[in-house]
Amino acid sequence: MTSPETVLATSTLPPPRDAYKINWIRLAPFLYTVGLFVAWEIGVRISGLPHTILPTPSRIFEAIVQYWSPIWKNSLQTLYTTVLGFLIAVVAGLGIGLFIGWSKTIYAGLYPIMIGFNAIPKVALVPILVIWFGIGTVPAVLTAFLISFFPIVVNVATGLATIEPETEDVLRALGAKKLDIMLKVGIPRSMPYFFGSLKVAITLAFVGSVVSETVASNNGLGNMMASAQSNFNVPLVFAGLLMLALEGIVMYALMAWLEKRMTGWAHRSTMSN
């Protein structure tokens, strides 16, 4: 005989279905990636394109296994030059951004110069860097730096330049100096812009280091792909691209995590309020 309590308990409990529910949103990035590779594989097989034009993903993975030692070594080299250049860009970008955002005159004077500098294709600078520093790691680091510091500068300067006038009035009426306003309001305020710009900057840094390695280095994924290409080893070229994509995704995710971690308040509120 069942007691009334157990009857009640079993009838009101929801069926334990939730535990088996698949979280499609979390799974989507992996499914879509797999889907892309599958479609690619099938497409190449059906069309019968040779490996020297477009290799199948399976052939690329084969190449990754086959050439793992040089791929690993060169991937680390590229990651190293990229991250180093990026770190210099963070320090310099933060510094120049604060300097530019400090006063309207400096902002007006330096902004056109910055725009002009940013318009120069950085690949055109690599030969100059080679004249100055020789080929290898240094020009790669510097190209990564030069290409990635601009978005950081612009974002930090924007954050500083958009302080609400009321906030400034309230503080100035209390006798606040420019430095006080910058420390208490300007810099914390520009941090969401700064961390947001890191995601853009890290991807650009990869572009810079690989361009430089391709043109002027004996190391790195850029150089590896350039020499693989001259040997018609197209699967190895694609293997290099895949490694670059992977490094890019990992670094981007790291920056996104950092952004969320450091400036959570900006994602839960509107800045203007």
């Binding site: 609400e164 009035d169 309230v170 009426a173 209390l174 006080d180 208490k184 309001v185 305020r189 309020n273």
Partner: peptide, 27 residues
């Protein structure tokens, strides 16, 4: 003087208490 405007201009990265203490860091 103390000032207050139509826009409250609270700093979103500080708690309400820290916002209120802000003038003391200036004066």
């Amino acid at each position: 003087v103390g000032m207050a405007f139509q826009n409250p201009t609270m700093l979103p990265w500080r708690t309400t208490l820290e916002n209120i203490l802000l003038p003391l860091e200036i004066v």
